[in-house]
Design a protein around this nucleic acid. Structure first.
Lengths: 137, 137
DNA sequence: ATTAATTTCTACCTTATTGTAGTATATACA
DNA sequence: TGTATATACTACAATAAGGTAGAAATTAAT
């Protein structure tokens, strides 16, 4: 029961960028500070940019920053880009017809947990996480 | 954010066996009723047996049933066999030193959810799920 | 004994995730 | 305009999860 590693990386890097709003940060710098494989991170940054969460500046002194139009990004937006949100509406046992009326054996236990998980990813934003960067990964 | 598919399969099959305590159920039967790939399920049953959760009877009219010494199995015991319990104590951002004193950015949000998840897998048992098998997978 | 139905064991295949390498392209600035 | 420093793009490699195939071993019943 966990996020994909790519999602971990994405949240890590987005939190870091949110704490350095006005600087262009290069992949190499982020790779070193956040301990994420360089080339893999490069591709992830590109993906986050295509998804509209980041602004990019190519060439010398280039890098990435949070997109100016997206100043309060929620966790669900990041997760949506990296692994999708399907699992937050899915039956934990993979029963395709699972519902309150037609529940799988774990339904009543899982539903409330799923609700809490959703509440977290839809309510926590990068703004809530500002300042929290004294972490060595 | 989900269980591995193998864990899904394992819980499905254990719930079914718990509802048919006195019968030897063959892999072929379970495969058909629970819609789990035949050969893959065979290996999973063997794994659950080696872990002591099931009793096996080889040969004609053979199959599996819940091990007589394990009449009230909790979810965490099944999950431990299929994917391990590491993720239930792990930082959601993979920060190796994450703790109350030295938290990652998501720590305070994740900790309470993790606690609920643990409470579920340590408190829900197959006994709690008996009778709930009117499900077509 | 023989046969049929079952698990066991070993090997391999497929797919998704994670990670690496190299070249092309863009930008800043001397 | 040349050079240094970035990202973009494409291809491929490694690993883990999920899945398949077939022969060997075990058991029940005839």
């Amino acid at each position: 029961m966990r996020f994909q590693k790519t999602t971990e990386y994405a949240i890590r890097v987005m939190v870091f960028l949110a704490n350095n709003q006005n600087e262009w940060l290069s992949v190499n710098h982020l790779h070193q500070v956040l301990n994420i494989p360089y080339k893999y991170l490069g591709r992830l940054m590109h993906t986050l940019t295509k998804a509209g969460l980041l602004e990019v500046n190519m060439g010398k002194h280039g890098g990435y920053k949070i997109h100016p139009d997206k100043q309060n990004i929620f966790l669900y937006q990041i997760i949506d880009v990296t692994e999708g949100l399907e699992s937050y509406d899915r039956c934990i046992l993979g029963f395709p017809e699972c519902s309150d009326e037609n529940p799988c054996p774990l339904h009543k236990y899982w539903i409330s947990l799923q609700k809490s998980l959703k509440e977290m990813i839809y309510s926590v934003s990068l703004g809530d996480l500002k300042g929290l960067i004294n972490v060595k990964y």
